[in-house]
Amino acid sequence: MSLLINLAFVALWFRLLSILTTTRVAEFLWQVLSKVSTDEKVLELRATRSRLVEVRQERTETSSKDEFAKWAKLDREYNKLKARMDLLNADVGRSRASLQNYVRTARWLLSSGLKLYLLWKYSSRPVVWLPRNVLPRFVEWVLSFPRAPMGSISASWWLTIVDHGLSAVTELIK
């Protein structure tokens, strides 16, 4: 009985996890981490980016026809900052990619990995006992796949059924 409910909660957990996709979680963590990071590259990137925005604004406000020298100097600074920023972005981008990898791995362990483990562990446990002689033998055999005793529903089928039910519910809510 408890296995039935536990597996139902596990299915619910998987559903919730599908909302927290790798990209969303990675993005969120990245935003948080970059704000508190003391890595010099990240700090420099932030400083460069804000200076770039300042310079661009100043340049837009300067008339190239009336103050060409000032405009050109701002343009030169802008190009230099942009080149530096592109370089830093590439470096920092690598760290970001590896963060995404970590998140992806963790997520897999908590979803598919967990699923595989549970299904393996409870593969021969019956989850729900079917009433006898109601369904044809063949159907009973299929529902007990892979290793649950005949006449019961296996863990993998139960998870599928609950998942189906949950998606129907979410459709209704939408």
């Binding site: 190239s64 026809k65 060409f68 343009d75 190009n79």
Partner: peptide, 13 residues
């Protein structure tokens, strides 16, 4: 003149 100046700056960069 403006355009020539602009072109010159671009060329120098």
């Amino acid at each position: 003149e403006f355009l020539s100046l602009y072109e010159t700056e671009r060329m120098i960069q």
